[in-house]
């Protein structure tokens, strides 16, 4: 079972957001309990204004320098960033963290975004979806613009890199035109991990083909199993290995999450792992760290050792490879 924690730092209006020290302290506790990744989001999908003092990608940059093993995933909107800038941000974060970063690409349009990003008319759901799919393809393409062995560092010969191992993207699509390449080297884990969440069925084929991790909504083990059994064959049909896609069930760890209920999840293993979603509330984080984490840590003794220091390694994804 793979384990993730999703932390929504968009705390409710009227309450102070968590500090960097509080977030870092929590992430280090979670890291010590061998959780594979923590996924940070900084805005309410409902469109309520966030009062978090931090934006997610900048926050995980800071967290990368005070953690060592845990994967760090940030949500970032396809409306708030140009694809070149976002690809470059995550490629940079991935090298800063030595290969521990992922991008959570939501397919849901946040009503606050278009109106604040000079798109007052917004997008229809279908347009938004096509645009997001084109966007994700560009980002993944840019992440592969430099071969892993492109950098030569040959001081005497005056050859810094091999120009034959740097590739233009030359993308011209319905919504975007991007020449590339990125001005940053290949990721230590091949490419940052692509996480997708908030999916509806119309997006399953796309997600099964391109995502590395899918976070399902919360549901019973039986519902989760059904969704996972739906997604995995789509990934295989797209020519991927089953283990190239990890599907995680989402759990809300309140007082109602008892040890028995946790046992159910671990015993039935309806999918590849569990994602615990937490609000930006110190008491909720403490409850999780004090009550749930020791339970997870005990179970972790039975888990196979991690295969690598990168997030792909944590998740057993292998490298992304060429598609």
């Amino acid at each position: 079972m793979h384990l993730a924690v999703s932390l929504d730092i968009a705390s409710v209006t009227g309450r102070a957001g968590l500090t960097l020290a509080e977030i870092a302290g929590f992430v280090r506790k979670v890291e010590a309990a061998a959780v594979d990744m923590v996924a940070i989001s900084d805005s309410w999908p409902s469109g309520k204004p966030s009062t978090s003092p931090f934006e997610a990608t900048t926050l995980i940059a800071a967290l990368a320098t005070v953690t060592e093993k845990i994967g760090l995933v940030a949500s970032a909107s396809t409306l708030m960033h140009q694809p070149y800038n976002l690809a470059r941000r995550f490629a940079s974060l991935d090298i800063i963290s030595h290969g521990r970063v992922g991008w959570n690409a939501t397919m849901r349009q946040n009503p606050r975004e278009a109106v604040n990003f000079s798109r007052p008319e917004g997008f229809s759901d279908a347009d938004f979806r096509r645009r997001a799919q084109e966007y994700i393809g560009i980002v993944q393409g840019l992440w592969r613009g430099w071969d892993a062995d492109a950098l030569l560092f040959d001081k005497a010969g005056g050859r810094f890199h091999d120009p034959g191992k740097m590739h233009m993207l030359d993308h011209k699509g319905e919504f975007f035109s991007v020449r590339g390449p990125l001005n940053i080297a290949r990721s230590p884990q091949d490419t940052p991990v692509l996480v997708m969440s908030g999916l509806v069925e119309a997006e399953f084929d796309f997600a099964a083909r391109f995502a590395d991790v899918i976070l399902l909504g919360d549901g019973s083990p039986a519902n989760v199993k059904a969704a996972c059994d739906d997604l995995k064959p789509r990934a295989i049909a797209a020519g991927r290995e089953p283990k190239a896609l990890r599907v995680l069930a989402t759990i809300l760890p309140g007082p109602q999450l008892t040890a028995d209920r946790l046992d159910d999840w671990f015993e039935t293993e309806p999918c590849d792992g569990l994602n615990f979603t937490l609000p930006a509330d110190l008491s909720a984080l403490d409850d999780f760290a004090d009550r749930i984490l020791p339970n997870l840590r005990r179970r972790d003794l039975a888990r196979p050792a991690r295969t690598g220091a990168t997030l792909r390694g944590n998740l057993g994804l292998g490298t992304g490879g060429e598609r």
Partner: peptide, 22 residues
């Protein structure tokens, strides 16, 4: 370009956010 080191480097907001913590 391949004879200089300038085609490769961190995006600066990522870099400075990391430096903020250190």
């Amino acid at each position: 370009a391949s004879q200089t080191s300038r085609s490769i480097g961190f995006e600066p907001i990522s870099l400075l956010s990391a430096l903020a913590a250190r």
